[in-house]
């Protein structure tokens, strides 16, 4: 029997998450090289039919359709995946390193006894075992990790790690899963989704953003930046620490848990450039970064960099613009 790479599909509000296709891209790449079948496991509600979107992306989709599978629930997902892993003995199972994946993969690793490497950015297979690359210390270093020898390996992938364009043109078989019991009572019960993104301004449409991060140091300094933004006709956005400290409302936040922006120019002041932040500015053609730390990861994605105290630059910009 051909070995398999099993990908766990993630969907929300009736659409597959982009990261699912990234996982399938990784499964396809590894599968082609190793002669493994790429199989996607889709758990969905009775009224849903997301399997259509997966055509061409993998060789097989295992679909389990039932009431209660409209929204992710770790307890249900874990029970079903354990059963599927037991029946099919995949060589590798791929998860997304998202809040839901972070809930599911580690717990499944313990209950199945299979080793897990989380938050990987790339995976290769060498001598029959996976070698994964992870980013550590905020992206300042990379680590290559191996896993304890096992029949099945679990990997969770950082969203944004794989480039996804078009389906691979694979002939996809859709197979319905039968006879799997779904836990009816769970200890965690979903209530609703809320959108925190709405606010007085919409940074996602702005042509010019001046974005601030931890580097501004004090709340009072925000005024200086506001003045500059006003003079230049820019909107203010920020990275996560500014919202965590309550210095700006959530709708200013750029990144995976905030907004995705695509301004003509994104000027990042005192932002180190954690991947969660950088993921939100991929659509911006020009990023100008000002940071004291010459090793800050933001300089790896910026087109222009200034290694300097941001307030010296802010002051000089104001003076140069004149009164």
């Amino acid at each position: 029997m051909k070995g398999t790479i099993l990908t766990i599909a993630e969907h929300r509000q009736n659409s597959l998450r982009e990261v699912t296709f990234e996982l399938l891209a990784l499964a396809h790449e590894l599968g082609k090289a190793q002669g493994l079948e790429s199989v996607c496991l889709l758990l969905e509600g009775e009224e849903q039919s997301l399997e259509g979107e997966l055509k061409g992306w993998c060789e097989r989709v295992l679909v389990l359709k039932a009431k209660g599978l409209e929204v992710f629930n770790q307890e249900i997902w874990q029970a079903v995946i354990l059963k599927v892993m037991g029946d099919r003995r995949p060589f590798m199972v791929l998860f997304s390193h998202t809040p839901w994946g972070m809930d599911l993969a580690p717990s499944l690793s313990v209950s199945s006894g299979y080793p897990l490497a989380t938050d990987c950015v790339s995976v290769v297979i060498r001598d029959g075992t996976p070698l994964a690359t992870r980013q550590i210390y905020g992206g300042k270093l990379f680590a290559e990790v191996s896993l304890r020898p096992s029949g099945t390996y679990l990997i969770s992938l950082r969203p944004g790690s794989m480039r996804v364009e078009n389906p691979f043109g694979l002939v996809t078989q859709i197979e319905s899963l039968m006879g799997i019991e779904i836990p009816q009572k769970t200890k965690k019960v979903f209530k609703e989704f809320v959108d925190t993104g709405a606010g007085e301004i919409d940074i996602s449409q702005a042509p010019f953003l001046i974005s601030i991060g931890r580097g501004i140091g004090e709340r009072e300094k925000l005024e200086e930046i506001k003045e500059l933004a006003e003079r230049m006709g820019a909107l203010i956005s920020c990275s996560r620490p500014i919202v965590d400290k309550n210095w700006l409302p959530k709708y200013h936040q750029v990144g995976t848990s905030g907004k995705t922006v695509k301004p003509k120019v994104y000027m990042a002041l005192g932002i180190s450039g954690a991947f969660q932040h950088v993921a939100g500015i991929k659509g911006s053609p020009t990023v100008i970064a000002v940071n004291k730390d010459k090793k800050a990861p933001i300089f790896r994605v910026a087109q222009y960099g200034v290694v300097e105290d941001l307030f010296k630059i802010v002051g000089a910009l104001k003076e140069t613009l004149g009164g």
Binding site: A143, E144, L147, A289, R300, Y304
Partner: peptide
Amino acid sequence: VPDVYVERLFYPPETGGAEIL
């Protein structure tokens, strides 16, 4: 016995990076 073993650490590969002003 660890499930995950660090084989090696390395510095991020050099990319084009920013033009420093």
